[in-house]
Amino acid sequence: MDIQEYIESGILEEYALGVLGEVERAEVERIAREHPVVDQELKEIVSGLDAYAEAHAVTPPAALRERVLAAWEQSIRPGQAPANPAAPAETPVVALPRMVASSAPEPAAAATAASEAVVRQMPVPGSGRRWMIAASVALLVLSGLGNYLLYNRLKETEANLQVAQTEQSRYAATQKAALNERDQQLAVLRNEAFQPVDLKGTPKAPEALARVYYNARTKAVYVDVRNLPALPEGKQYQLWALDNGKPVDAGMLADATASGDSIQQMKNIASAQAFAMTVEDIGGVESPTMSTLTVIGNI
């Protein structure tokens, strides 16, 4: 055997790297015992690789020390968890199941015990079992039916809730708009610049009463109805401003205004000495029908 050729074959490196099988390893060891040159060569290779490994040393994080040592301790003391010797992996703290699996022959007995512990027969008499199955099926059906009913009721409740929520938000929106409007009206009524003008009923409608608020500076006109006779079908009250005896259209009264539910801003009027209302066709006319004059008042 050519020793030099053997040394250069690369088998010693493979031995040191741990990639050889059992038989090859034993062969290398035998030859190394017989040939000091091979033994020396092998030692050098091993120590070279060891040095290379050592050169890569990295101190692990300090916290790792305790974890690793605790896990190791758990793995070697499977019986430490009382009354549960068959399941070392289930012992508390850090023990990892696969570590137990990888730890060669020692826990084999424990593993056998574990598999024995799992096989457990439940003695169930045949007839009792049939009854249990029937009862189970009945319970399942009942449970399904119950679920169906509850589900339907849930859907119904959800629908009702949605309706109620929609209603509520619509009401809130309406109320908010109404409130805004009232605030505006209140601002008009409180404003000193608005001059109130009482319009009193003509002999044709002596109970009729309305009030106009006129702002001579901004030319704004508001009307507030106290009481006006009900209108015939297709008719509407029209407000007129009288400027030097000449009637000027000041706009039509909305239904809510005529019924006194709300005050209404009318057309701006440049100048007026009196206001009056007549009953006209819906949409209004260019000049008032004097026979339907209902209320009138001077500034």
Binding site: P60, P61, L64, R67, V68, L69, A71, W72, S75, I76, V94, L96, R98, M99, V100, S102, S103, A104, P105, E106
Partner: peptide
Amino acid sequence: EETAEDVLQEAMVKIWH
């Protein structure tokens, strides 16, 4: 790092056993 920790734990157990 977390794999390295696992392997180091396994190594400790294996070395002992």
